[in-house]
Design a protein around this nucleic acid. Structure first.
Length: 535
RNA sequence: GGCCACGUGGCGGAGUGGUUACGCAACGGUCUGCAAAACCGUGUACCCCGGUUCAAUUCCGGGCGUGGCCUCCA
Protein backbone atom coordinates (compact mmCIF):
# COMPACT_ATOMS: atom_id res chain seq x y z
CA UNK A 1 0.00 0.00 0.00
CA UNK A 2 1.45 3.30 -1.09
CA UNK A 3 0.78 6.78 0.16
CA UNK A 4 -0.67 8.98 -2.56
CA UNK A 5 -0.88 12.73 -2.21
CA UNK A 6 -2.31 15.42 -4.42
CA UNK A 7 0.25 17.95 -5.57
CA UNK A 8 -1.03 21.43 -6.38
CA UNK A 9 1.95 22.10 -8.62
CA UNK A 10 1.24 19.26 -11.02
CA UNK A 11 -2.49 18.99 -10.25
CA UNK A 12 -2.33 15.26 -9.84
CA UNK A 13 -2.31 12.59 -7.21
CA UNK A 14 1.09 10.93 -7.06
CA UNK A 15 2.78 8.24 -5.03
CA UNK A 16 4.71 9.86 -2.23
CA UNK A 17 8.37 8.95 -2.08
CA UNK A 18 10.41 10.85 0.49
CA UNK A 19 13.79 12.23 -0.46
CA UNK A 20 15.15 10.51 2.63
CA UNK A 21 12.98 7.93 4.40
CA UNK A 22 15.09 8.41 7.50
CA UNK A 23 14.05 12.04 7.62
CA UNK A 24 10.75 12.92 5.99
CA UNK A 25 10.42 16.68 5.89
CA UNK A 26 7.29 18.81 5.91
CA UNK A 27 6.76 22.54 6.22
CA UNK A 28 3.42 24.20 6.91
CA UNK A 29 2.71 27.91 7.10
CA UNK A 30 1.65 28.71 10.62
CA UNK A 31 -0.24 31.57 12.18
CA UNK A 32 0.52 35.24 12.42
CA UNK A 33 0.23 35.82 16.12
CA UNK A 34 -1.73 38.95 16.84
CA UNK A 35 -5.14 37.68 17.93
CA UNK A 36 -7.10 34.54 18.75
CA UNK A 37 -6.88 31.97 15.98
CA UNK A 38 -10.18 31.42 14.19
CA UNK A 39 -11.83 28.25 13.04
CA UNK A 40 -10.40 28.75 9.55
CA UNK A 41 -6.89 28.75 11.01
CA UNK A 42 -7.72 25.46 12.67
CA UNK A 43 -8.26 23.64 9.40
CA UNK A 44 -4.68 23.42 8.09
CA UNK A 45 -3.44 22.72 11.60
CA UNK A 46 -5.74 19.72 11.85
CA UNK A 47 -5.25 18.54 8.26
CA UNK A 48 -1.48 18.52 8.47
CA UNK A 49 -1.57 17.05 11.95
CA UNK A 50 -3.36 14.06 10.44
CA UNK A 51 -0.68 13.86 7.77
CA UNK A 52 2.04 14.21 10.41
CA UNK A 53 0.56 11.30 12.35
CA UNK A 54 0.31 9.21 9.20
CA UNK A 55 3.91 9.92 8.21
CA UNK A 56 5.10 9.08 11.72
CA UNK A 57 3.25 5.81 11.49
CA UNK A 58 4.74 4.99 8.08
CA UNK A 59 8.32 6.12 8.60
CA UNK A 60 8.71 6.05 12.36
CA UNK A 61 8.16 8.69 14.99
CA UNK A 62 11.79 9.80 14.91
CA UNK A 63 11.99 9.98 11.13
CA UNK A 64 9.61 12.83 10.41
CA UNK A 65 10.44 16.52 10.76
CA UNK A 66 7.43 18.79 10.78
CA UNK A 67 8.13 22.52 10.79
CA UNK A 68 5.37 25.04 11.37
CA UNK A 69 6.49 28.63 11.65
CA UNK A 70 5.22 31.44 13.78
CA UNK A 71 5.08 34.81 12.11
CA UNK A 72 5.86 37.38 14.75
CA UNK A 73 6.83 40.32 12.61
CA UNK A 74 3.92 41.87 10.80
CA UNK A 75 2.00 45.13 10.44
CA UNK A 76 -1.06 43.73 12.17
CA UNK A 77 1.02 42.70 15.17
CA UNK A 78 2.49 46.20 15.35
CA UNK A 79 -0.93 47.77 15.18
CA UNK A 80 -2.32 45.47 17.84
CA UNK A 81 0.64 46.08 20.13
CA UNK A 82 0.29 49.84 19.92
CA UNK A 83 -3.41 49.54 20.60
CA UNK A 84 -3.22 47.18 23.57
CA UNK A 85 -0.11 48.47 25.29
CA UNK A 86 0.05 52.17 24.48
CA UNK A 87 2.32 52.87 27.45
CA UNK A 88 5.05 50.48 26.43
CA UNK A 89 7.79 50.92 23.86
CA UNK A 90 6.59 49.26 20.66
CA UNK A 91 9.06 46.40 20.75
CA UNK A 92 8.13 45.46 24.31
CA UNK A 93 4.46 45.72 23.45
CA UNK A 94 4.99 43.51 20.42
CA UNK A 95 6.65 40.87 22.55
CA UNK A 96 3.70 40.92 24.93
CA UNK A 97 1.22 40.51 22.11
CA UNK A 98 3.10 37.71 20.38
CA UNK A 99 3.81 35.80 23.57
CA UNK A 100 0.21 35.96 24.70
CA UNK A 101 -1.19 35.02 21.30
CA UNK A 102 1.34 32.26 20.85
CA UNK A 103 0.27 30.71 24.15
CA UNK A 104 -3.42 30.95 23.25
CA UNK A 105 -2.76 29.33 19.92
CA UNK A 106 -0.95 26.39 21.47
CA UNK A 107 -3.68 25.82 24.03
CA UNK A 108 -6.33 25.96 21.33
CA UNK A 109 -4.73 23.51 18.92
CA UNK A 110 -3.84 21.15 21.77
CA UNK A 111 -7.55 21.00 22.59
CA UNK A 112 -8.11 20.11 18.93
CA UNK A 113 -5.88 17.09 19.40
CA UNK A 114 -2.92 18.40 17.40
CA UNK A 115 0.57 17.20 18.22
CA UNK A 116 3.24 19.85 18.56
CA UNK A 117 5.33 20.10 15.38
CA UNK A 118 8.97 19.06 15.57
CA UNK A 119 10.10 22.66 15.26
CA UNK A 120 8.15 25.91 15.59
CA UNK A 121 10.57 28.59 14.47
CA UNK A 122 9.80 32.26 14.97
CA UNK A 123 10.51 34.71 12.20
CA UNK A 124 12.27 37.19 14.45
CA UNK A 125 14.80 34.55 15.45
CA UNK A 126 15.77 33.85 11.84
CA UNK A 127 16.62 37.28 10.51
CA UNK A 128 20.19 36.16 9.80
CA UNK A 129 19.02 33.36 7.51
CA UNK A 130 16.70 35.72 5.70
CA UNK A 131 19.49 38.18 5.12
CA UNK A 132 21.72 35.43 3.79
CA UNK A 133 19.04 34.47 1.28
CA UNK A 134 18.54 38.10 0.29
CA UNK A 135 22.26 38.59 -0.27
CA UNK A 136 22.37 35.53 -2.46
CA UNK A 137 19.42 36.70 -4.51
CA UNK A 138 20.96 40.10 -5.02
CA UNK A 139 24.26 38.51 -6.01
CA UNK A 140 22.58 36.22 -8.52
CA UNK A 141 20.67 39.09 -10.10
CA UNK A 142 17.28 37.86 -8.92
CA UNK A 143 16.83 40.77 -6.55
CA UNK A 144 17.77 44.45 -6.49
CA UNK A 145 17.92 47.36 -4.10
CA UNK A 146 15.64 50.34 -4.58
CA UNK A 147 15.13 53.15 -2.08
CA UNK A 148 16.30 51.00 0.84
CA UNK A 149 13.99 48.16 -0.20
CA UNK A 150 15.16 44.87 -1.58
CA UNK A 151 12.82 43.59 -4.26
CA UNK A 152 12.64 40.25 -5.96
CA UNK A 153 12.73 40.63 -9.71
CA UNK A 154 9.92 38.46 -11.00
CA UNK A 155 10.97 38.66 -14.67
CA UNK A 156 14.33 37.19 -13.66
CA UNK A 157 12.61 33.86 -13.12
CA UNK A 158 11.25 32.56 -16.38
CA UNK A 159 8.85 29.99 -14.91
CA UNK A 160 7.41 32.16 -12.14
CA UNK A 161 3.71 31.46 -11.70
CA UNK A 162 3.62 27.72 -12.24
CA UNK A 163 2.10 26.85 -8.87
CA UNK A 164 -0.85 29.20 -9.24
CA UNK A 165 -0.99 28.67 -13.02
CA UNK A 166 -0.82 32.35 -13.60
CA UNK A 167 0.61 33.32 -16.95
CA UNK A 168 3.29 35.91 -16.28
CA UNK A 169 1.93 38.52 -18.66
CA UNK A 170 -1.58 38.32 -17.29
CA UNK A 171 -0.51 39.06 -13.78
CA UNK A 172 -0.49 42.77 -14.31
CA UNK A 173 -3.77 42.99 -16.15
CA UNK A 174 -5.88 42.12 -13.16
CA UNK A 175 -3.66 43.64 -10.54
CA UNK A 176 -5.33 46.08 -8.25
CA UNK A 177 -2.22 46.70 -6.26
CA UNK A 178 -0.87 50.16 -6.10
CA UNK A 179 2.54 49.87 -7.69
CA UNK A 180 5.40 51.47 -5.82
CA UNK A 181 7.24 53.79 -8.20
CA UNK A 182 10.65 52.32 -7.44
CA UNK A 183 9.68 48.85 -8.65
CA UNK A 184 11.28 47.83 -11.92
CA UNK A 185 8.34 45.62 -12.66
CA UNK A 186 4.87 45.84 -11.19
CA UNK A 187 5.01 42.17 -10.20
CA UNK A 188 8.19 42.47 -8.14
CA UNK A 189 7.69 41.80 -4.45
CA UNK A 190 9.43 42.94 -1.31
CA UNK A 191 12.15 40.89 0.38
CA UNK A 192 13.24 43.61 2.79
CA UNK A 193 11.87 47.03 3.58
CA UNK A 194 12.91 49.94 5.74
CA UNK A 195 11.34 50.11 9.19
CA UNK A 196 9.38 53.12 10.28
CA UNK A 197 10.57 54.83 13.46
CA UNK A 198 9.69 52.76 16.52
CA UNK A 199 9.01 49.61 14.50
CA UNK A 200 11.08 46.46 14.95
CA UNK A 201 14.25 46.94 12.96
CA UNK A 202 17.39 45.02 12.12
CA UNK A 203 20.58 46.01 10.30
CA UNK A 204 19.77 45.71 6.62
CA UNK A 205 21.42 43.44 4.05
CA UNK A 206 22.69 44.35 0.60
CA UNK A 207 24.58 47.43 1.71
CA UNK A 208 21.49 49.34 2.83
CA UNK A 209 22.38 51.64 5.69
CA UNK A 210 18.87 52.26 7.04
CA UNK A 211 17.63 49.55 9.41
CA UNK A 212 14.76 47.48 8.10
CA UNK A 213 12.63 44.39 8.44
CA UNK A 214 11.86 41.37 6.29
CA UNK A 215 8.97 40.96 3.89
CA UNK A 216 6.46 38.26 4.61
CA UNK A 217 7.42 35.66 2.03
CA UNK A 218 11.13 35.47 2.81
CA UNK A 219 10.48 34.11 6.32
CA UNK A 220 9.23 30.78 5.12
CA UNK A 221 12.02 30.35 2.61
CA UNK A 222 14.57 31.04 5.33
CA UNK A 223 13.07 28.84 8.02
CA UNK A 224 12.32 25.88 5.76
CA UNK A 225 15.89 26.11 4.49
CA UNK A 226 17.35 26.11 7.98
CA UNK A 227 15.39 23.14 9.27
CA UNK A 228 14.60 21.13 6.16
CA UNK A 229 17.25 22.03 3.62
CA UNK A 230 17.21 23.48 0.13
CA UNK A 231 14.69 20.93 -1.09
CA UNK A 232 12.24 18.98 1.01
CA UNK A 233 9.23 16.70 0.72
CA UNK A 234 5.99 18.48 1.53
CA UNK A 235 4.95 22.09 1.79
CA UNK A 236 1.45 22.79 3.04
CA UNK A 237 -0.93 25.59 3.83
CA UNK A 238 -4.33 27.06 3.03
CA UNK A 239 -5.34 27.33 -0.61
CA UNK A 240 -5.46 31.10 -0.33
CA UNK A 241 -1.70 31.08 0.19
CA UNK A 242 -0.99 29.64 -3.25
CA UNK A 243 -0.73 33.11 -4.64
CA UNK A 244 1.25 35.08 -3.91
CA UNK A 245 2.83 33.60 -0.78
CA UNK A 246 3.84 30.15 -1.95
CA UNK A 247 4.59 31.30 -5.45
CA UNK A 248 7.01 33.81 -4.01
CA UNK A 249 8.55 31.31 -1.62
CA UNK A 250 9.28 29.06 -4.57
CA UNK A 251 10.83 31.93 -6.47
CA UNK A 252 13.06 32.91 -3.55
CA UNK A 253 14.21 29.45 -2.62
CA UNK A 254 14.75 28.10 -6.09
CA UNK A 255 16.64 31.15 -7.29
CA UNK A 256 18.75 31.28 -4.13
CA UNK A 257 19.71 27.62 -4.34
CA UNK A 258 19.46 27.05 -8.10
CA UNK A 259 17.19 24.09 -7.53
CA UNK A 260 14.46 22.80 -9.86
CA UNK A 261 11.90 22.51 -7.04
CA UNK A 262 11.49 23.79 -3.51
CA UNK A 263 9.23 21.00 -2.25
CA UNK A 264 8.18 17.82 -4.04
CA UNK A 265 4.56 18.06 -2.95
CA UNK A 266 2.52 21.20 -2.47
CA UNK A 267 -0.59 20.54 -0.46
CA UNK A 268 -3.39 23.01 0.12
CA UNK A 269 -6.48 22.71 2.24
CA UNK A 270 -9.79 24.11 1.03
CA UNK A 271 -11.35 27.26 2.36
CA UNK A 272 -13.68 27.36 5.31
CA UNK A 273 -16.71 29.58 5.33
CA UNK A 274 -19.01 30.29 8.20
CA UNK A 275 -22.73 30.11 7.60
CA UNK A 276 -22.31 30.48 3.87
CA UNK A 277 -20.10 33.52 3.93
CA UNK A 278 -16.45 34.28 4.08
CA UNK A 279 -15.62 34.80 7.71
CA UNK A 280 -14.99 38.38 8.64
CA UNK A 281 -15.51 40.61 11.61
CA UNK A 282 -17.68 42.97 9.62
CA UNK A 283 -19.99 40.16 8.50
CA UNK A 284 -20.47 39.23 12.15
CA UNK A 285 -19.70 35.58 11.48
CA UNK A 286 -16.21 35.54 12.90
CA UNK A 287 -15.68 32.56 15.15
CA UNK A 288 -12.51 31.81 17.06
CA UNK A 289 -11.35 28.40 18.24
CA UNK A 290 -11.47 29.73 21.78
CA UNK A 291 -15.13 30.69 21.45
CA UNK A 292 -16.00 27.21 20.27
CA UNK A 293 -14.14 25.67 23.17
CA UNK A 294 -15.71 27.94 25.76
CA UNK A 295 -19.12 28.73 24.40
CA UNK A 296 -20.45 29.28 20.89
CA UNK A 297 -24.18 29.48 20.17
CA UNK A 298 -24.97 28.59 23.73
CA UNK A 299 -22.61 25.65 24.14
CA UNK A 300 -19.00 24.94 24.90
CA UNK A 301 -17.80 22.34 22.40
CA UNK A 302 -15.21 19.63 22.91
CA UNK A 303 -12.18 20.11 20.69
CA UNK A 304 -12.49 16.49 19.64
CA UNK A 305 -15.95 17.22 18.21
CA UNK A 306 -14.54 20.15 16.24
CA UNK A 307 -11.86 17.86 14.86
CA UNK A 308 -14.34 15.08 14.10
CA UNK A 309 -16.49 17.59 12.24
CA UNK A 310 -13.54 18.75 10.15
CA UNK A 311 -12.59 15.19 9.28
CA UNK A 312 -16.04 14.59 7.76
CA UNK A 313 -14.96 16.68 4.78
CA UNK A 314 -12.01 15.94 2.53
CA UNK A 315 -9.24 18.45 3.13
CA UNK A 316 -9.34 19.88 -0.39
CA UNK A 317 -13.09 20.52 -0.32
CA UNK A 318 -14.58 23.70 1.06
CA UNK A 319 -16.38 23.53 4.40
CA UNK A 320 -19.30 25.64 5.45
CA UNK A 321 -18.99 25.80 9.21
CA UNK A 322 -22.26 26.15 11.09
CA UNK A 323 -24.02 25.07 14.23
CA UNK A 324 -25.47 21.91 12.67
CA UNK A 325 -22.04 20.71 11.68
CA UNK A 326 -20.59 20.93 15.16
CA UNK A 327 -23.65 19.80 17.09
CA UNK A 328 -24.11 16.81 14.83
CA UNK A 329 -20.49 15.81 15.30
CA UNK A 330 -20.57 16.29 19.05
CA UNK A 331 -23.69 14.19 19.19
CA UNK A 332 -22.25 11.37 17.14
CA UNK A 333 -18.99 11.34 19.06
CA UNK A 334 -20.87 11.25 22.31
CA UNK A 335 -22.77 8.24 21.05
CA UNK A 336 -19.54 6.56 20.01
CA UNK A 337 -17.95 7.24 23.37
CA UNK A 338 -20.96 5.97 25.25
CA UNK A 339 -20.78 2.76 23.26
CA UNK A 340 -17.08 2.44 23.90
CA UNK A 341 -17.73 2.80 27.57
CA UNK A 342 -20.57 0.31 27.42
CA UNK A 343 -18.35 -2.10 25.51
CA UNK A 344 -15.63 -1.85 28.10
CA UNK A 345 -18.08 -2.06 30.94
CA UNK A 346 -19.47 -5.28 29.51
CA UNK A 347 -15.96 -6.67 29.93
CA UNK A 348 -15.81 -5.53 33.50
CA UNK A 349 -13.48 -2.69 32.57
CA UNK A 350 -14.92 0.35 34.26
CA UNK A 351 -11.89 2.20 35.46
CA UNK A 352 -10.34 4.92 33.37
CA UNK A 353 -6.83 3.54 33.73
CA UNK A 354 -7.90 0.11 32.58
CA UNK A 355 -9.49 1.68 29.57
CA UNK A 356 -6.41 3.68 28.79
CA UNK A 357 -4.19 0.65 29.18
CA UNK A 358 -6.31 -1.30 26.76
CA UNK A 359 -5.67 1.40 24.16
CA UNK A 360 -1.99 1.86 24.78
CA UNK A 361 0.22 0.89 21.86
CA UNK A 362 -2.69 -0.07 19.67
CA UNK A 363 -2.03 0.46 15.99
CA UNK A 364 -4.70 1.95 13.75
CA UNK A 365 -6.72 -0.51 11.69
CA UNK A 366 -5.60 -1.14 8.14
CA UNK A 367 -9.00 0.05 6.91
CA UNK A 368 -8.45 3.48 8.39
CA UNK A 369 -4.85 3.53 7.20
CA UNK A 370 -5.73 2.60 3.66
CA UNK A 371 -8.27 5.40 3.37
CA UNK A 372 -5.74 7.94 4.61
CA UNK A 373 -3.12 6.61 2.22
CA UNK A 374 -5.38 7.77 -0.59
CA UNK A 375 -4.66 11.48 -0.34
CA UNK A 376 -5.87 11.72 3.26
CA UNK A 377 -9.42 10.66 2.58
CA UNK A 378 -10.56 11.42 6.08
CA UNK A 379 -14.31 11.13 5.33
CA UNK A 380 -13.70 7.53 4.26
CA UNK A 381 -11.56 7.11 7.34
CA UNK A 382 -14.43 8.20 9.57
CA UNK A 383 -16.66 5.70 7.80
CA UNK A 384 -14.04 3.03 8.49
CA UNK A 385 -13.98 4.00 12.15
CA UNK A 386 -17.73 3.47 12.32
CA UNK A 387 -17.66 0.15 10.49
CA UNK A 388 -18.16 -2.71 12.89
CA UNK A 389 -20.06 -5.92 13.02
CA UNK A 390 -20.85 -5.68 16.66
CA UNK A 391 -19.68 -3.87 19.73
CA UNK A 392 -17.66 -6.72 21.07
CA UNK A 393 -14.50 -5.89 22.94
CA UNK A 394 -12.22 -6.31 19.95
CA UNK A 395 -14.29 -3.97 17.76
CA UNK A 396 -14.60 -1.54 20.61
CA UNK A 397 -10.88 -1.33 21.14
CA UNK A 398 -10.26 -1.05 17.41
CA UNK A 399 -12.70 1.84 17.17
CA UNK A 400 -11.12 3.63 20.09
CA UNK A 401 -7.64 3.01 18.74
CA UNK A 402 -8.61 4.42 15.35
CA UNK A 403 -10.11 7.50 16.96
CA UNK A 404 -6.93 7.91 18.95
CA UNK A 405 -4.79 7.59 15.84
CA UNK A 406 -6.86 10.23 14.08
CA UNK A 407 -6.21 12.51 17.03
CA UNK A 408 -9.88 12.65 17.90
CA UNK A 409 -9.67 10.88 21.24
CA UNK A 410 -7.35 12.21 23.90
CA UNK A 411 -7.02 10.84 27.40
CA UNK A 412 -9.00 13.77 28.68
CA UNK A 413 -11.81 13.02 26.22
CA UNK A 414 -11.99 9.40 27.25
CA UNK A 415 -12.20 10.49 30.85
CA UNK A 416 -14.59 13.41 30.47
CA UNK A 417 -16.26 13.87 27.09
CA UNK A 418 -18.75 11.11 27.72
CA UNK A 419 -18.88 11.85 31.42
CA UNK A 420 -22.36 11.71 32.80
CA UNK A 421 -23.54 14.53 34.91
CA UNK A 422 -26.42 14.56 37.28
CA UNK A 423 -27.83 16.77 39.97
CA UNK A 424 -29.18 16.11 43.39
CA UNK A 425 -32.93 16.31 43.62
CA UNK A 426 -32.93 19.31 45.93
CA UNK A 427 -31.00 21.56 43.56
CA UNK A 428 -33.25 24.00 41.77
CA UNK A 429 -33.24 25.31 38.21
CA UNK A 430 -31.95 22.04 36.90
CA UNK A 431 -31.84 23.12 33.25
CA UNK A 432 -29.35 25.84 33.99
CA UNK A 433 -27.36 23.49 36.21
CA UNK A 434 -27.17 20.87 33.49
CA UNK A 435 -25.84 23.52 31.13
CA UNK A 436 -23.17 24.50 33.61
CA UNK A 437 -22.31 20.87 34.21
CA UNK A 438 -21.83 20.39 30.48
CA UNK A 439 -19.51 23.37 30.39
CA UNK A 440 -17.49 21.82 33.20
CA UNK A 441 -17.39 18.49 31.43
CA UNK A 442 -16.22 20.09 28.18
CA UNK A 443 -13.64 22.16 30.04
CA UNK A 444 -12.16 18.98 31.48
CA UNK A 445 -12.33 17.14 28.16
CA UNK A 446 -10.49 20.04 26.54
CA UNK A 447 -7.83 20.17 29.26
CA UNK A 448 -8.81 23.76 29.95
CA UNK A 449 -8.21 24.34 33.67
CA UNK A 450 -9.02 28.05 33.48
CA UNK A 451 -12.44 27.44 32.01
CA UNK A 452 -13.07 24.60 34.47
CA UNK A 453 -12.17 26.88 37.35
CA UNK A 454 -14.53 29.58 36.13
CA UNK A 455 -17.39 27.09 36.00
CA UNK A 456 -16.52 25.86 39.47
CA UNK A 457 -16.62 29.36 40.84
CA UNK A 458 -20.07 29.84 39.34
CA UNK A 459 -21.21 26.74 41.16
CA UNK A 460 -19.55 28.02 44.27
CA UNK A 461 -21.41 31.34 44.09
CA UNK A 462 -24.66 29.41 43.89
CA UNK A 463 -23.80 27.44 47.02
CA UNK A 464 -23.24 24.32 44.95
CA UNK A 465 -20.41 21.92 44.45
CA UNK A 466 -19.53 19.39 41.79
CA UNK A 467 -18.24 15.99 42.75
CA UNK A 468 -16.30 13.80 40.35
CA UNK A 469 -17.09 10.19 40.97
CA UNK A 470 -15.62 7.04 39.56
CA UNK A 471 -16.95 5.74 36.27
CA UNK A 472 -17.07 9.25 34.82
CA UNK A 473 -19.91 10.67 36.83
CA UNK A 474 -20.16 14.33 37.78
CA UNK A 475 -22.72 15.12 40.42
CA UNK A 476 -23.92 18.58 41.34
CA UNK A 477 -25.22 19.04 44.83
CA UNK A 478 -25.52 21.61 47.58
CA UNK A 479 -22.29 22.27 49.34
CA UNK A 480 -23.83 21.08 52.58
CA UNK A 481 -25.15 17.88 51.05
CA UNK A 482 -23.24 14.82 52.14
CA UNK A 483 -25.72 12.24 50.96
CA UNK A 484 -24.68 9.60 48.52
CA UNK A 485 -26.04 10.32 45.08
CA UNK A 486 -25.85 6.74 43.89
CA UNK A 487 -27.74 5.56 46.93
CA UNK A 488 -30.53 8.06 46.54
CA UNK A 489 -30.89 7.18 42.86
CA UNK A 490 -30.94 3.53 43.79
CA UNK A 491 -33.58 4.19 46.44
CA UNK A 492 -35.83 5.98 43.97
CA UNK A 493 -35.41 3.15 41.49
CA UNK A 494 -36.44 0.66 44.13
CA UNK A 495 -39.49 2.71 45.03
CA UNK A 496 -40.42 2.81 41.39
CA UNK A 497 -39.93 -0.92 41.08
CA UNK A 498 -42.39 -1.43 43.90
CA UNK A 499 -44.90 0.86 42.26
CA UNK A 500 -44.50 -1.03 39.00
CA UNK A 501 -45.10 -4.36 40.65
CA UNK A 502 -48.28 -2.84 42.09
CA UNK A 503 -49.07 -1.56 38.57
CA UNK A 504 -49.23 1.93 39.99
CA UNK A 505 -48.13 3.52 36.72
CA UNK A 506 -48.84 7.06 37.88
CA UNK A 507 -46.44 6.75 40.77
CA UNK A 508 -43.78 4.93 38.77
CA UNK A 509 -43.89 7.57 36.03
CA UNK A 510 -43.71 10.33 38.61
CA UNK A 511 -40.52 8.84 40.01
CA UNK A 512 -39.17 8.46 36.51
CA UNK A 513 -39.85 12.16 35.89
CA UNK A 514 -38.19 13.10 39.13
CA UNK A 515 -35.09 11.17 38.16
CA UNK A 516 -35.19 12.75 34.71
CA UNK A 517 -35.00 16.16 36.37
CA UNK A 518 -31.82 14.98 38.02
CA UNK A 519 -30.49 13.97 34.65
CA UNK A 520 -30.95 10.28 35.23
CA UNK A 521 -32.49 8.20 32.48
CA UNK A 522 -33.81 4.78 33.30
CA UNK A 523 -33.51 1.75 31.11
CA UNK A 524 -35.76 -1.15 31.85
CA UNK A 525 -34.28 -4.36 30.58
CA UNK A 526 -35.14 -7.99 31.08
CA UNK A 527 -32.53 -8.17 33.79
CA UNK A 528 -33.89 -5.24 35.74
CA UNK A 529 -33.61 -1.48 35.67
CA UNK A 530 -30.32 0.25 35.00
CA UNK A 531 -29.73 3.93 34.76
CA UNK A 532 -27.65 6.32 32.80
CA UNK A 533 -27.27 10.03 32.75
CA UNK A 534 -29.13 11.87 30.01
CA UNK A 535 -27.13 13.44 27.26
C1' G B 1 -11.92 40.91 -16.82
C1' G B 2 -8.14 36.65 -15.94
C1' C B 3 -7.09 31.98 -13.33
C1' C B 4 -9.07 27.83 -10.39
C1' A B 5 -12.42 24.76 -7.72
C1' C B 6 -17.17 22.85 -6.83
C1' G B 7 -22.74 21.55 -7.80
C1' U B 8 -24.77 13.96 -4.98
C1' G B 9 -31.00 11.76 -1.18
C1' G B 10 -34.35 16.20 4.42
C1' C B 11 -29.18 17.79 6.01
C1' G B 12 -23.69 16.84 6.09
C1' G B 13 -20.61 14.17 2.84
C1' A B 14 -17.42 9.98 0.16
C1' G B 15 -17.10 7.36 -4.21
C1' U B 16 -17.76 4.92 -8.85
C1' G B 17 -18.30 3.97 -16.52
C1' G B 18 -22.90 -1.01 -15.08
C1' U B 19 -23.18 -3.33 -7.89
C1' U B 20 -25.07 -0.78 -0.10
C1' A B 21 -20.92 4.73 0.99
C1' C B 22 -21.04 6.52 5.77
C1' G B 23 -23.16 9.85 9.54
C1' C B 24 -27.24 12.90 11.41
C1' A B 25 -32.43 13.41 11.15
C1' A B 26 -37.04 10.87 9.79
C1' C B 27 -40.09 6.62 9.49
C1' G B 28 -41.37 1.24 10.49
C1' G B 29 -40.44 -3.11 13.54
C1' U B 30 -38.61 -6.10 17.94
C1' C B 31 -38.58 -5.24 23.20
C1' U B 32 -41.69 -2.39 26.92
C1' G B 33 -47.54 -1.21 31.18
C1' C B 34 -46.11 3.28 28.41
C1' A B 35 -41.42 5.22 27.41
C1' A B 36 -36.18 5.51 27.02
C1' A B 37 -32.04 2.76 25.50
C1' A B 38 -30.58 -1.14 22.48
C1' C B 39 -31.11 -4.04 18.17
C1' C B 40 -33.23 -4.85 13.12
C1' G B 41 -35.10 -2.56 8.88
C1' U B 42 -36.81 1.43 5.23
C1' G B 43 -36.00 5.68 1.55
C1' U B 44 -35.02 4.00 -5.06
C1' A B 45 -29.82 10.93 -4.57
C1' C B 46 -26.31 12.28 -8.17
C1' C B 47 -27.71 20.89 -11.51
C1' C B 48 -29.40 21.40 -17.03
C1' C B 49 -28.45 20.31 -22.33
C1' G B 50 -25.66 17.81 -25.88
C1' G B 51 -21.69 14.09 -27.14
C1' U B 52 -18.71 9.40 -26.56
C1' U B 53 -20.39 4.35 -24.99
C1' C B 54 -23.87 -1.69 -25.10
C1' A B 55 -24.11 1.36 -20.54
C1' A B 56 -22.71 8.06 -17.50
C1' U B 57 -24.04 10.66 -11.46
C1' U B 58 -18.95 9.02 -12.95
C1' C B 59 -15.48 10.70 -19.34
C1' C B 60 -15.80 15.11 -23.11
C1' G B 61 -18.17 19.90 -24.66
C1' G B 62 -21.60 23.81 -23.64
C1' G B 63 -24.94 26.25 -20.20
C1' C B 64 -26.64 27.76 -15.41
C1' G B 65 -25.38 28.28 -10.26
C1' U B 66 -22.04 28.71 -5.91
C1' G B 67 -17.30 29.72 -4.01
C1' G B 68 -11.90 30.86 -3.96
C1' C B 69 -7.57 33.54 -5.81
C1' C B 70 -5.85 37.82 -8.73
C1' U B 71 -4.89 42.81 -2.25
C1' C B 72 -3.14 41.21 4.28
C1' C B 73 -5.59 36.36 4.71
C1' A B 74 -5.54 29.19 6.57
Amino acid sequence: MELKLYDTLTREKRVFKPLDPANVRMYVCGPTVYDFAHIGNARPVIVFDVLFRLLRHLYGVDHVTYVRNITDVDDKINARAAEEYPGLPLNAAIRKVTEKTDKQFHEDVAALGCLPPTVEPRATEHIAEMKTLIERLVASGNAYVAEDNVLFSVPSMHDYGRLSKKPLDELIAGARVEVAPYKRDARDFVLWKPSKPGEPAWPSPAGISAPGRPGWHIECSAMSWKYLGETFDIHGGGIDLVFPHHEDEIAQSRCAFHTPVMANFWMHNGFLQVEGEKMSKSAGNFVTIRELLRGWKGHAWPGSAIRWAMLQTHYRQPIDWNIEMISRSANELLGLLNRLRAGFRAQGLVDFDQLRNALRDRKPSKEVLSTLMDDLNSPEATAAVRAHKSWNIEETIRCAADLTFLGVLKDSDIRYFAAFHAISSDVENSDKMMGLATDYQVARANNDPLFAASVLSQFDNLGLKIVEKESSLLVISKKSDNSNFDESVQRLIEERAKARVAKNWTESDRIRDELAKMGVVLKDTKDGTTWEIAR
